[in-house]
Design a protein around this nucleic acid. Structure first.
Lengths: 251, 251
DNA sequence: AAGTGGTCTAGACCACCTC
DNA sequence: AGGTGGTCTAGACCACTTT
């Protein structure tokens, strides 16, 4: 192949910085240690602080660093494996419910998009159960579970929000629902999710969308879950315990 | 209740800008249209260009905008649904192989981490088949399929790289492998992947890790796939037919 | 040549945490 | 009070594309 000299292709400074920092982190620091502050690193490498921050942004996105305002920048722990198989969802299955905590339950007409996704008229009420997923004392994910009123017709009238949420979940369990096709994509945490995840708005999240269908194919519920992209590795499949660590190697 | 001190939890300008831009994009622009250039938008909103770019960075991460150097910033098309069920992988199943294109096949001793993940000695050669996933003429993902030499003992000696890759895949198909537990996490495209994906280094990708096991539980292969996070929505589940989304909207 | 997004700078101030 | 990361500015130059 006539590969030419190709000259240039000048590598951006921040990308080169990232490479150097990766080597430094892997070689000289261990999980939980604080690395030198941004002003010092910028001076050491002879770049502006903004340029250094671009490199740190990358490493934070990759889950290699954690930045804490007022504290410093720390080497992050390896990402937590979060099982997201239906059996691990705490619903429709029964076990493991402890991993989820109901924080809210609202009832209102659906937005246009939600109504279409659920296949219900725009004037039918939809219950939305807000849950957070807690792992090792940390909130790692949130979920908005949208359930049309017609799916759960026998709700108690006047109950506390979390109690009504529990009723919705109980009624769903009695149905034989299948949640087979799911989608995963990248998103950012907006106001409500960001608050629950204890992260600033705009933080990257992995969004899992799961429609639950009855045996006759009707969509009985729609779950939209968001997981912290910086600290979570979602695992699918039968076993909840996966031992494969990150194996991505740059050769 | 007099005036509260608390006052406002000051929302960052770039986050507010993002909100405004979302409304503007959804309301006044359609897919493929170019929005005003950065300098004009910055002036219009009375902020520095860097601040405006922070907002655009968010929207690009969400897949709402696409920025092209020398061209402008365009409203992105909805993300492409990419089926990643084992049956859609073009392997071990037979059909749909057309979606993947082999670009490379190398043979070398594994890195320490890779050797551990595969459960092979550090001096056993491992074949790495590089493939790219093509959808609608676009490269949406790459894959590095790591196969220990002992898994595929009958490879032809002197073949072109893509031919040897094909041999590896053929031999894997003959084995009865199960790829059940998979992991999905956020990563960034490094040099090789970035080049194949036709994206700059550091672009966000969804990383899918799939160990393939023989009936006796040995890890026979490990696939590490990366998909463009800006344009892809990964779909799991039985049906692969969800891909009818690709109707090109004539603008 | 002109216009676009991409990178980089040097500085400022703010919000948060610890001492 | 002093240190840290988070936000924002005003400007410069570069790389790429179109005219």
């Amino acid at each position: 192949m006539g590969t030419t000299e190709r000259e240039a292709a000048p590598e951006p400074k921040y990308w080169h910085l990232r490479t150097v920092l990766v080597r430094t982190i892997d070689g000289e620091f261990s999980t939980g240690q604080v690395i030198p502050n941004e002003r010092e690193l910028a001076a050491r490498f002879g770049v502006a602080r903004a340029t250094l921050r671009q490199a740190l942004d990358q490493l934070e996105l990759e889950g290699r660093l954690v930045r804490r305002r007022g504290i410093g920048t720390l080497v992050a722990a390896p990402r937590t494996a979060v099982p997201v198989s239906p059996a691990d969802e705490g619903w429709p299955g029964t076990a493991r419910d402890a991993a989820w905590r109901i924080v809210d339950c609202t009832t209102a007409p659906p937005s246009a998009r939600l109504a279409e996704a659920l296949g219900v008229p725009a004037d039918e009420n939809v219950h939305t159960v807000r849950r957070v997923r807690v792992t090792a004392g940390q909130v790692v994910g949130t979920e908005a579970l949208h359930v049309p009123d017609s799916t759960v017709p026998h709700l108690p009238g006047f109950a506390a929000e979390t109690d009504r949420g529990r009723s919705v979940l109980r009624q769903l369990q009695r149905l034989e629902l299948s949640g087979q096709s799911r989608a995963v994509e990248l998103g950012v945490a907006e106001a409500e999710e960001a608050r629950l995840l204890e992260r600033p708005p705009g933080s990257p999240v992995l969004v899992v969308t799961t429609p639950y269908a009855t045996s006759d194919g009707r969509t009985a519920a729609l779950a939209v879950s968001t997981y912290r992209a910086d600290t979570c590795r979602l695992t699918f499949g039968e076993t909840g315990l996966v031992e494969v660590d990150e194996v991505r190697t740059a050769s």
